[in-house]
Every structure is written in C-alpha cells, then in structure tokens.
C-alpha cells in the first residue's frame, strides 16, 4: 500500500525525483493559471508583429499571424496536461480491470486476455491511432480516448503479475475464510497492494501520452488551430523553418521538459516505492 507522507518525504530526498516533481508542479501552475500568467490572449492577432523574433514585448517571439508564442504555449500546456491525464486514466482503468480479472481467475480467462494483449502489442499503435482518428474524426476527446484504448497493455501485465503473486498470500486466504466475495477480495484486498507499480507506470504513461498528442497535432491530426497545442505550434515552426527558429525551438523544449519531468518523477517514485530494484 502507498503511504503518502513517507513516500512524499522519500521523494523529496531523491534529487532526480525532486527535479521531476518541480517540473511537473511548474507545468501544473502554468496550465491552471494560464489566463492570469499569459501576457496576451492566445488568439490575439498583432499584424504589426508577424514572425517577430524574441523581444521585450514577446519573449518567445510571435507566429505567422503575429500571435504571442509564449501565451500560446501556456494555453497549450492545458491541452497536454488534459490529454495526458485523461488518456492515462482510461488506460489505467482498462489495464487494472483486465489485469486483475486475468491474474485472479487465471485459466482460460487469463489465456484469452493475455492473447488480446499480445495482439494489441503487435499492431503498431501509432498507425492504429492515426487510422482510427482518420475514421472517427479528430477531436480532443477522440484523441484522449484512442490513446487510452491503445496503451493499457503494460498496466494489465503489471497488475496481472502482482495478482498472481498476491492471491496466494495469507491475507487473501484470511479474507476468503472470513467469507469475502471475489469482488471484495479483488478490489479491497489485493488491488491496494498492487497499486505501487501501477502508479509508477501511470506517471510514465503520461509522458508517453504527451509525446503522442504532440506528434498527432504536429501532423495536423490532433488539436486543431486556432486552439494552441505544442504540436501545432511546431507545425508552423516547420512551415517557417528558414526564418523563424523560435517557433520550433521553444515549444519543442516545452515538450522535452514535460516528458523529462514525468519520467524523472516516475523513475524516482519507482526507487522510493521499491527499494529492492534500486541496486539493480
């Protein structure tokens, strides 16, 4: 089980995790307070400052319509935050359910579900995501859902493995002896003890989801302009590659930092929650 105060304390002592935590926290602040912090509105057009390089008025420069890049990036952080959390929420939910059922009941249910995992792992997921988005249309909700539906396999394997080892333990036997039903044993006895690795993989999953969303938006299949996303700012960076380096450099750095932050936090959390792995 995850004990919050101890975990937080141990996290703060781990330099990698701490830096990840700070990055993620700053990102949250940026996203939540975007309307207050952003110097301009994200759709405010300034015809006198088209493709202006970074200067005092526009720290990160402006894009081809004269919109402030910094403000657009701040609003864009909301998109990547939302996509990351919702997509990983969906993936984790599916992964936990299928993994728990698979590991707890075993036998043919397990074989069927694990075959399904093999199948899903065989299909290049980025292709699958692109194809589905082409078919059902590109909205931010579709993107969240489809990223979630194509990235639950790792979680379900993790949960299954935990269930396989935990279901033979004494506390489960005790619960069964005292008359607890399957659902009760799965959700209130075993699952809380299997959550630590799930939590780590969810945080690492957010990083992956942020990368996928930005790639999709970059290809023009994700968040549609005028709504800003780091990916679609980079698209205009590509179109103006020869003149406006700031359109490519800053949003890319934002993606890199975000993904780095979640990865560091996730890895740090893994060290803290599972000290046995640390010396490996």
């Amino acid at each position: 089980m995850i004990k919050l105060p101890q975990t937080t304390q141990a996290l703060l002592k781990n330099p990698l995790a701490l830096s990840g935590f700070i990055i993620v926290l700053l990102l949250f602040a940026c996203a939540v307070f975007a309307p207050v912090l952003a110097p301009y509105d994200y759709k405010e057009v300034n015809v006198r400052a088209i493709l202006a390089p970074p200067n005092i008025h526009h720290i990160f420069g402006t894009d081809e319509l004269g919109r402030d890049v910094l403000s657009r990036m701040m609003y864009g952080s909301r998109i990547s935050l939302a996509v990351g959390f919702v997509a990983v929420g969906i993936a984790t939910l599916i992964g936990i359910l299928l993994g728990a059922v698979s590991g707890y009941y075993g036998r043919w249910i397990d074989s069927c579900l694990m075959r399904l995992v093999d199948i899903m792992l065989c299909i290049p997921s980025f292709f699958l995501i692109l194809a589905v988005i082409a078919f059902i249309g590109q909205s931010i909700w579709n993107i969240m859902a489809i990223i979630g539906f194509t990235s639950w396999m790792g979680v379900s394997r993790l949960v299954r493995a935990e269930f396989l080892s935990l279901k033979e333990r004494e506390f489960v036997l005790a619960a069964r002896a005292s008359g607890a039903g399957d659902m009760r044993i799965i959700f209130s006895q075993i699952l809380p003890n299997a959550m630590a690795p799930v939590f780590v993989s969810a945080i690492l999953g957010i990083a992956a989801a942020v990368l996928i969303e930005s790639s999709l938006s970059f290809l023009g299949l994700g968040v549609q302009p005028p709504l800003p996303s780091w990916g679609n700012i980079l698209t205009s960076g590509k179109d103006n590659m020869e003149t406006a380096w700031w359109l490519s450099v800053f949003p890319g750095c934002a993606i890199l930092l975000t993904v780095l932050g979640y990865n560091l936090l996730g890895e740090g959390l893994q060290d803290v929650l599972n000290p046995r792995l640390k010396n490996k």
Partner: peptide, 22 residues
C-alpha cells in the same frame, strides 16, 4: 538516456533539418 527518451522525434527532425540542411 533520459533526454533521449523525452525528445520528440519530429522536433529533433526539425532541429536537425534547420542545422544541417538550412
């Protein structure tokens, strides 16, 4: 390795194109 994991490939492509080709 951490930075490599976090770098979006399309961004890296853009940067490398800007540097080596443009």
């Amino acid at each position: 390795v951490f930075i490599g994991f976090a770098t979006p490939t399309f961004w890296l492509s853009l940067l490398l194109m800007m540097l080596f080709s443009v």
